[in-house]
Design a protein around this nucleic acid. Sequence first.
RNA 1: CGGGACGUAGCGCAGCUUGGUAGCGCGCAGCGUUCGGGACGCUGAGGUCGCGGGUUCAAAUCCCGCCGUCCCGACCA
Length: 568
Amino acid sequence: MRLSKLFVPTLREDPADAEIASHRLLLRGGFVRQVMSGVYTILPLGLRTIRKIEAIVRDEMDAAGSIELRMPILLPADPWRATGRYDLYGETLFKLTDRHDRDLILGPTQEEVVALMAAADLPSYRDLPKNVYQVEWKYRDEFRPRFGLLRVREFLMKDAYSIDRDEDGMRESYRIMYEAYERIYARCGVDYVIVEADPGQIGGGVNHEFMARATVGEDLFVECENGDYLADTEAARPMVPEPAGEGTESLTEIDTPDTPTIDALASLLGVAPSKTLKCVMFDVAGTTTAVLVPGDREVNVEKLGKLMFPAKVRPFQDTDFGARGFAKGYVGPQGFDGNVQVLADLTVRGGNDWVTGSNAKDRHVTGANVDRDFRVDRWEDVVEFREGDRCPIDGGTLRIGRSIVVGHIYQLGTKYSEPLGARFVDEDGTEKPYVMGSYGIGFGRIMATTVEQRHDDVGMVWPKVLAPFEVVIVIATRDHDATVAEAERIYEELRGRGVDVVIDDREQSAGVKFADADLIGYPVQVVVGKRGLEAGTVDLKLRATGDKTQAPIAEASAAVVDLLATAP
RNA sequence: CGGGACGUAGCGCAGCUUGGUAGCGCGCAGCGUUCGGGACGCUGAGGUCGCGGGUUCAAAUCCCGCCGUCCCGACCA
């Protein structure tokens, strides 16, 4: 390609609205332009990179046995009502109506479509398993688009869906996708980790996020110092402590004036907050639910919501305490009647002889013990992760890292097939719902993430597999016919060798071309100029290291191929 | 949606406090010079000052409302 013929509007100055490196550099390098908040035009250079990502993804999906198809973006709302996602996604869904006043949506993801498609056209266990994928625009009316291409409202995604007859099949399909994803990110040169994650609005059970390490990432993840545990902070669970067993104290009620908070109580009694038992009250679909956690910890409402799903979880308002006969700030689990569901976090097992509320204002109890003094109906993991918590696997210290989620895979089970009545006939003649999985990768995020991970103060530093072009030939002395002729010759030779090369034949000064080459970040730069020509050489530069070398002009193309082979 | 900031030529900005009818740099066009790290000279084009209303003889400037964009918090590829 010729830069004189391409459309590469680079900018000299940083755009005012771009804060993070990837946004700033992709705008400056002429890869993308913003149309409105969270919506971008992909310019020719950006499109070339996106297509390279797409080719790698397609290659791995095809190799993993997934079959490409294309589903509509414009979708009927009804299946989404059936699965509950119409309301669950809420405002994030782009909703519209057609001329017949029928409710439609723009697809944010397509589990419903796949389930219904399977129901119609994959009627037998003999048709299974199937794995289908598409590369398609996705629409999500995010609360706040931000960070350039990292959080947008319209984005290009590869979404795949596995359809199996049973759980074992789903797990096998999931494993295959998991491994395909590992290869995809490795090939793209993304520095990533895989974490156990929160399923969010897609729902389901086991799921993993592929997180690219970054300094600007929106997502926090937890990593064990020993490298054996990784999880999204929302899903992270601390080590379950050894059961402390029953304590030695007897249940004693004491006066604790003006101590509605853990801090006030702990300082009055001179005990550690972790010795107190916090009793946090929720309304779960109308049932009063008490959640017990050590006084120094917080309840993770998201985790609780997932445990109770589909029942709605609502923290007690001030009025709820009085209305249901609880003393706010002094609630304790002993003496709850059967109308109160008692859920305790697993960390509560590690303590005994608790200090907790007495259910009377300004009074607490000491020496409270599980089973002897109060009942626990369910033991679950519901605490908020804290920096410094112990790893659930080996007890090592957990640290927090920052990342960009570049992929997310889910074991969905029958979450979508069940409510949609999407069933096949199994070998034994009975109808069963499909057991599904879904697997997504956002292309724009991979592009932006790569820039975040690979840039310097003058521009982007593309790995050769994703660079819009692998090599740029800069004509440094454009009024010198012999220089132009040599540059053209090298250009044709490189093309002949199958190198993805672009020639900067624009009517620009050499300085502009050099600056643009560094900004755009072609892995290899070839400078052909009068000066070199007279010495019989061309200059080569490896963008990643900045190393410059000379090559004899007659062997320029071979030298470029060799240098390219060493490029990251 | 809550909190903060911004909106003046394609891009980056000044002008606003103290109203008098818009300016700088880059970019763009023409001519000439230059030609290996964002060249130089001359000439020139380009602006509903985000939109609407109000105050005033007069509004980019003051007041009210709205819209848009970005940043910080609740969602996700």
